[in-house]
Design a binder for these strands. Structure first.
Length: 420
DNA sequence: TCTGGGGTCCTAGGACCC
DNA sequence: TCTGGGGTCCTAGGACCC
């Protein structure tokens, strides 16, 4: 038997979180709104039945929905993060192999439970609900892609009791026959349009497609999807996800921003949030992007969506240094006369801060820093000067103003420097 | 000055996910 | 007036190396 993989997914997660702490919201239509109460990002089943769409701008139908008795909440990410941790912790008791995939979803490897998949899943559901108050749905199948489909089937069919198992071909055939291409994990509008051109219009047709042709036309990603649909696990359970490679802090503004000073304040504040996030994960960066956007929903207005990369001399997580870099980037792209709707920063090539801690540039008064300074001098004498040292991306980069990339000599120097 | 294969690195952008 | 905020992976093409 193939190894079973479970996908556990919290039902209407943000709306369910609100209900845990406000029980009177049970059995009522509840929606949770995005930042600035702009659009709908979560709906209870009752709200879905009223026809409220995911991502719908709230203001368009607000009066209408309020009349229908819809309960509205602004989002509270701190609460959701905390509830998520409790749910994940609870689920971890049910398998030694857990991959937390998003704030409201995780995969569990269920090898060893083959003879009692359903009952194990039912017990998971009951325990999570009892311990956290959050309802979940569970799909079990031999591949992640099929587990997603099993989960969806469990959600759609109330008689399933929130558990769907697709471990054999017969059940997989039935489930695949009921869904559309774009219901498959990894297949969205663009891809489905391209598939349809090749006469692949249903999940069953996609599963039956020639993998060589698929690979040729659509690349490895889609080839993997086809294999996964056949029950061949190509996307492994990732129990120890790598640290983040980049992070973003951005927001839509409550009202249009038109002055440089306001934009500077916004960008500085985003950067300080971003730096905080980064430090909390023990990371640093030498490579940031500053960006801003005009309101794309007002095509009649002049549009401008610039972005600017800024490279720092060495990776840091120091807020002051990062804010200064962001201001520099902003000044390079700032143009007056536009009405900006959004702004933010992106931190790229995140690298463990320990690799740059106590670096030459961070703390010149620190004795170990002095030692590094001396070491750099010695290294320069040994290998020759003329190179600036960049530490980013967990990679080691050299920039000698002529060539853009790494060399052995640089690696040697970096290692020597870190020894000090 | 021109020819060429085999490679890496970087950037931008597309497509998808929750 | 009012339309989210994060992420990842892959590919193509240019610049540059030996």
């Amino acid at each position: 038997m193939q190894r079973p993989i479970a996908l556990i997914d919290c039902n209407n997660f943000y709306a369910s979180c609100e209900r845990v702490f406000q029980p009177h919201l049970r059995n009522r239509p509840v929606v949770v709104l995005s930042n600035n109460d702009g659009c709908v990002i979560a709906r209870s089943n009752e709200a879905k039945s009223l026809g409220i769409e995911m991502g719908a701008p709230w203001h368009l139908n607000e009066d209408n929905y309020r009349k229908l008795g819809v309960e509205v909440r602004s989002s509270n990410y701190t609460l959701y993060g905390d509830m998520s941790a409790r749910v994940m912790k609870t689920l971890s008791h049910f398998s030694p192999h857990q991959e937390i995939y998003s704030i409201d979803e995780c995969f569990l490897g269920l090898e060893g439970f083959e003879d009692r998949l359903e009952s194990h899943a039912r017990q998971m559901r009951a325990t999570v609900y009892q311990w956290t108050g959050i309802p979940v749905s569970i799909g079990i199948a031999p591949s992640k892609t099929l587990a997603k489909i099993a989960n969806r089937a469990a959600k759609k069919n109330p008689e399933s009791g929130g558990v769907g198992v697709l471990m054999n071909h017969a059940s997989q055939d039935v489930a695949l026959a009921k869904i559309a291409l774009t219901d498959i994990w990894g297949v969205a509008r663009r891809l489905s349009e391209r598939l349809e051109v090749m006469n692949i219009k249903t999940p069953l047709q996609l599963r039956a497609a020639d993998t060589r042709v698929i690979r040729q036309e659509f690349g490895v990603v889609v080839e993997r999807i086809v294999k996964e649909l056949r029950g061949e696990a190509c996307i492994e359970l990732d129990e120890a996800p790598a640290t983040k490679k980049s992070l973003v802090a951005s927001r839509s503004f409550g009202r249009p921003v038109e002055s440089l000073q306001e934009m500077q304040e916004a960008i500085a504040s985003h950067m300080s949030r971003a730096a905080e996030k980064m430090r909390s994960q023990g990371l640093a960066t030498a490579n940031i992007i500053v960006f801003m956007d005009t309101n794309r929903f007002r095509p009649q207005d002049p549009q401008y969506s610039p972005s600017q990369t800024v490279n720092l001399p060495i990776a840091t997580s120091d807020t002051g240094r990062l804010v200064a870099a962001a201001m520099k980037g902003l000044s390079a792209i700032w143009k007056r006369g536009f009405s900006y709707k959004k702004g933010g920063v992106m931190l790229l090539d995140l690298t463990p801060a320990s690799a740059v801690q106590g670096s030459l540039f961070e703390s010149p008064d620190d004795p170990s820093s002095m030692a590094r300074m001396a070491a750099l001098d010695a290294i320069n004498r040994k290998y020759g000067k003329g190179t600036l040292v960049y530490g980013t991306a967990g990679k080691k980069r050299e920039w000698d103003m002529r060539r853009g990339y790494m060399s052995q000599a640089y690696t040697t120097r970096w290692d020597e420097l870190l020894k000090v």
